[in-house]
Design a protein around this nucleic acid. Sequence first.
RNA 1: GGGCGAUUAGCUCAGUUGGUUAGAGCGCCUGCUUUACACGCAGGAUGUCGGGGGUUCGAGUCCCUCAUCGCCCACCA
Length: 933
Amino acid sequence: MSLADLPKAYEPQSAQSRWYAFWLEKGYFHANPASDKPPYTIVIPPPNVTGALHLGHALNNTIQDILIRWKRMQGFETLWMPGTDHAGIATQAVVETRLRKEENKTRHDVGREGLVERIWAWKDEYEQRILSQLRLMGCSCDWDRTRFTLDPICARAVRETFFRLFQADKIFRGKRLVNWDTHLRTAVADDEIEYIEQAGHLWSIRYPVTGSDESLVVATTRPETMLGDTAVAVHPEDPRFKHLIGKTLTLPLMNRPIPIIADGILVDPKFGTGCVKVTPAHDPNDYQTGLRHNLPQINLLNPDGTYNENAGAYAGIDRREVRKRVVADLEEQGLLVKVEPYANRVGLSDRSKTPIEPYLSDQWFVRMTDGTNGEQGLAQVAMDAVTSGRVQIHPERYAKSYLDWLGEKRDWCISRQLWWGHRIPIWHCGTCSESEISRAFAGRDDVAWRAAESGGWLICSTSDLAEDVLGAPHVLTQDPDVLDTWFSSALWPHSTLGWPEPTAELAKFYPTSVLSTARDIITLWVARMVIFGEFNMNDVPFKDVFIHPVIQDGKGQRMSKSAGNGIDPVDIIDLYGADALRFTLASAATETQDLRMPVDKAKLPDGREVNTSERFEQGRTFPNKFWNAARFALMNLEGYEPGELSHGDLTIDDRWILSLLERTARDLTNDLNSFAFAEASKRLRDFTWNDFCDWYVEFAKARLRDPETRPVAQRVLAAVLDGLCRLLHPVIPFVTEQVWQALGEIAPQRGFPTPETAAESVCIAQWPSYPADWHDAEAESIVAQWQEKIAAIRNLRAERNVPTAAKVAPIIIVNEALGATLREGEAHIKSLTNAASVTITTSADRPAESAVTVLGDAEVILPLEGLIDRKAEEERNRKALANVDKQLASIDGKLNNDQFVSRAKPEVVEDLRAKRAELVSQRESVLKLLPNQ
RNA sequence: GGGCGAUUAGCUCAGUUGGUUAGAGCGCCUGCUUUACACGCAGGAUGUCGGGGGUUCGAGUCCCUCAUCGCCCACCA
């Protein structure tokens, strides 16, 4: 590329496609398990194939790519494992919804195989879309290893894990009150329920005490469930009912005797009537109460939401209709005491928006509790991983939610009544005997069995079993349920590496290094990965967990497609470029738990109106600034000759920028080590923009024009630009590669003090760690002096409205030592203030018409004949005096306070005294500027 | 109800172990086609650090309390 062709503004789109293709072609993202380099691994949190990636994904993947690119440059053998999640219920639900909308069919119309086929087609489409979005963002994943939680490699791991859990007696089948979606006919997880306030009623119903005139009144929001009542509970200490405990009631409508029980946990005597109906099969609290009192559980519900034969006369009727009839019948019998309006919260299924019914059904569980013989349960092992520090969660506060949740040690319900997912590898045989089974599977270690509570045998296998494998007349039927999506996700860190095969990948890359994710799945996912990692691999799945903030809109609302406040990362890439997206997101990734992005509208080139945020502007301007600084450098590197440099060849400003470069590299490395992405971004911006562009480039201009000084200036410039490319690359990979390549053409050998041939891509360039002796306190303090004086002169020019083009002749009055320092930068002071001359002296007569600024250690005088407004000048000086006096008053207040002087740290007092002395001399100088003082 | 977090400039956010006059970006104001960049340069204004109380020589920072907002968990017969 010729330098003349470099566009003035950075053009992200062409750089993105060009360099991403280049990286892929070179295979930089490919992880080699045979490498000698130390491993660094990240597994991507597999996005759900339900849809395209949103801004939260963009944030998370930016973070991961920064880490991976940084570690790759540090010389690690990096593996970023990409992939997607089948997301059982969510994916099946979107496909079912589409089926209904487009073909007016339910899943039962197309059948299990038909539906699964359609979901695969959907998955293929969205997986491609997701993966291409990641590539657009610049993610350096090892694409050859792309996995899907339902692919054969993951399936193998799922089967093996289930089998091992089954053998270890960690899997059991049990009754469980689940959240039943009568529309989708499946159980849904607690977190898949959305609660809404609904205006409902509270019905009070009278239950007569058998063989007595007395009765109890219960209040309920769900009267229809009374058909399944198996007790009424009162508080054990409630004087109103104490005498009735142990007596029997006649359940209205069903005419069934039910006991009056005492239960202090369920009943709050101050609430309602103080009597609670107990329906163990249809209410979570009642279920627990039922277990405590050994009550029967009467299930009233069919899977489709109609009532079953246990509801007597109400069998076959939909639950909503049952409610109406039960209320009407009770009223007719005079047992309905009252009906009050009552605002209650109704749980709706996220997917179908129909009310959730608590429903007693058979489910599969993973046992989390400790074993009866004292061996540690799965939950405890996972807790220990964090409390021992083998897994570190950042920010640390999130460890609490992890530990609190696991501390409950609740068994994990892993079965889902869905068709999309890993089928539970259990076959049931109701007719055979154990001897027949052991004969059929003799010598096989991939089959295990156990008696089913309901009769027959449960056979678990890592491979599919044919239904006739036991021979006639026995028939094996596979459990119809599939596993909870999190079961396969929980295996992700080792299943993707090929477990249970003893692969080279597993040996090299497990445990992984960092997991970056959102806090809402710390329990659902992170905890379960630790559980399964420990169970299968006997080791933690990752060493560090980074919890990134949640992105909200400007009003603090979560972004969502339905709310219309979502920002599509691809739109941002179209508008500003991938580097802009990444830089903004990295700058926003602070330690807070939420981050806000006020949403605005913008027009794409194709005319579409999309959501954006002004915060992406800074992401756009920064790479562009860097691009232009690089253009400046490249234009001035013509004729570059590599060469050895020694400290003595350098000017003060060279030493200064190298000192700052060394510090920036060191601090940046610390930022990244501690996941401080916002600080890292700010540090990069400050160094690039404020130090390099605003000062160093300006300092270097004159020397680059002078043939005498040009070679050394070029070598330093090339070395600093080289360093900038490397340091910026993890955050803004595209523009840095573009610059790296251009720099490579003109200055392939570069560096200080000894030039080296640069790598063919900044992707694989070495991460800088400069020698500590680059640190140069002297140069830093000298340049700070220059900057202070230049700023003072510029300020005087601007304040006094000196025309931009007018040359000035400032006078700086300082002591001899400082004067020598300033004279070394005289040329810079001149050029950066547009001065014809600069006078640096220990004393001078102040011209009558001049503007003056009194600094701590100097007086800066700008002679301005004919331009001075004496009155305004006097006013400014009085203001300056007032300012000094205010500070002096504050300091004197402290120094005159004996308590302060005696108790404060001596160095604080010392500093204050020094400051006071400076202020006093400053005050004198200012006083001289005022008339007749 | 339990837990976590937030509240600092118009907006989005920094502010290390308490210590000189609290910072940045955006926005705003003034000037500028200064040979890398107007996605820019130079200069500037803007804060009862949510309220109240306490500890301390000294509090944006530590403690208590109240308020508002957000999130997680549990629960509402």
